[in-house]
Simulated assay, not measured.
Amino acid sequence: MSEPLTMIAVASVGLLGLSIAVLAALKGWQGWLDLKRMELAGSQRSEARSPAFERIEMADLKERIRKLESIASGVDL
């Protein structure tokens, strides 16, 4: 092939690769936005929690904090 045709072929392949990468990134972005929309919709519905659930969740958070504090102080569990 001649030099100009080689340059056109390389540029075309590069443009095609870039287009595929951009489309994949846009698809990932849309998926991430859908995930965040579902998380927001789920958090609005979960406001009517029972008091027992709140106590269990608070106990779980306190346990996690205790473990993190022991890790920070260098104590093995």
Results as ranks from 00 to 15, higher is better:
Lys36Met: 12
Val22Arg: 03
Leu68Tyr: 02
Phe53Tyr: 14
Leu68Met: 14
Ala72Pro: 00
Arg49Cys: 00
Phe53Met: 06
Thr6Val: 04
Thr6Glu: 09
Val10Lys: 06
Ile71Ala: 05
Arg49Thr: 01
Val75His: 11
Leu16Thr: 03
Gln30Pro: 00
Leu77Pro: 00
Phe53Thr: 04
Ala11Arg: 01
Glu69Phe: 03
Lys27His: 15
Asp60Thr: 15
Met38Ala: 15
Ile8Thr: 07
Ile8Gly: 00
Gly74Arg: 09
Ile8Phe: 02
Pro4Glu: 05
Phe53Asn: 02
Leu68Lys: 07
Ser2Asn: 15
Glu63Asn: 13
Leu16Glu: 02
Lys36Phe: 01
Glu3Thr: 13
Ser70Met: 14
Val75Tyr: 09
Asp60Trp: 13
Leu33Val: 14
Ser50Val: 01
Glu69Gln: 10
Arg64Leu: 08
Arg55His: 13
Ile65Met: 12
Lys62Arg: 13
Ser2Lys: 14
Val13Trp: 00
Arg49Val: 01
Arg49Met: 06
Leu5Val: 10
Leu16Asn: 05
Gln30Cys: 08
Ile65Asn: 07
Ser50Pro: 00
Lys27Trp: 09
Ile20Ala: 11
Ala48Val: 03
Gly42Lys: 02
Ser19Met: 13
Val10Gly: 02
Lys67Ala: 06
Gly17Cys: 09
Asp60Phe: 11
Arg45Phe: 02
Glu47Val: 05
Glu57Asp: 14
Leu35Glu: 15
Glu63Tyr: 04
Met38Ser: 15
Thr6Met: 04
Leu77His: 10
Ala25Thr: 12
Glu57Ser: 15
Pro51Ile: 05
Leu33Ile: 08
Pro51Gly: 03
Val75Lys: 10
Ser73Met: 11
Met7Thr: 07
Met1Val: 03
Ala25Tyr: 09
Asp34Pro: 00
Arg66Ser: 08
Gly42Glu: 07
Val75Thr: 15
Glu54Leu: 14
Arg55Ile: 10
Asp76Ile: 12
Leu40Ser: 04
Glu3Leu: 10
Leu26Asp: 04
Ala52Pro: 00
Glu69Gly: 01
Gly28Pro: 01
Ile71Gln: 11
Lys62Ile: 07
Ala72Lys: 15
